[in-house]
């Protein structure tokens, strides 16, 4: 991942994270955008999985949907942190 790619991802994932915290339905489309931005980078598997889970769950508030939302949050957090580390690395 280049620093350019990392900065772009950090910005995209910051919006995703806040939508997930607020349980905002726009989280899914934003996550899909971030996944495309991450294609081919080291964090792509994390965001592929997060996007797949997001597409497959209804978000209707049952226990399974709550667990899915928490897992998606964790995957997004892992990708965000990895991208932040690249962005913060010395040039």
């Amino acid at each position: 991942m280049t620093r350019w790619e990392a900065v772009r991802l950090v910005a995209a994932l910051g919006a995703v994270e806040m939508c997930l915290v607020r349980d905002d339905p726009v989280a899914g489309p934003l996550l899909a955008q971030a996944r495309r931005a991450a294609a081919g980078t080291a964090v792509a598997p994390l965001l592929d999985e997060a996007a797949a889970i997001s597409r497959a769950t209804s978000g209707d508030g049952d226990a399974g949907a709550r667990a899915a939302r928490k897992v998606v949050q964790a995957l997004v957090r892992a990708a965000t942190q990895a991208a932040q580390a690249v962005a913060l690395a010395a040039p």
Binding site: E49, I53, G64, A67, A68, K70, V71, A74, L75
Partner: peptide
């Protein structure tokens, strides 16, 4: 358990993958 959540088989979450 993965990422702190209990994950049942057959749902939207792939426990082994996670």
């Amino acid at each position: 358990r993965a990422f702190g959540e209990w994950i049942a088989p057959g749902g939207a979450l792939d426990a082994e993958r996670l």
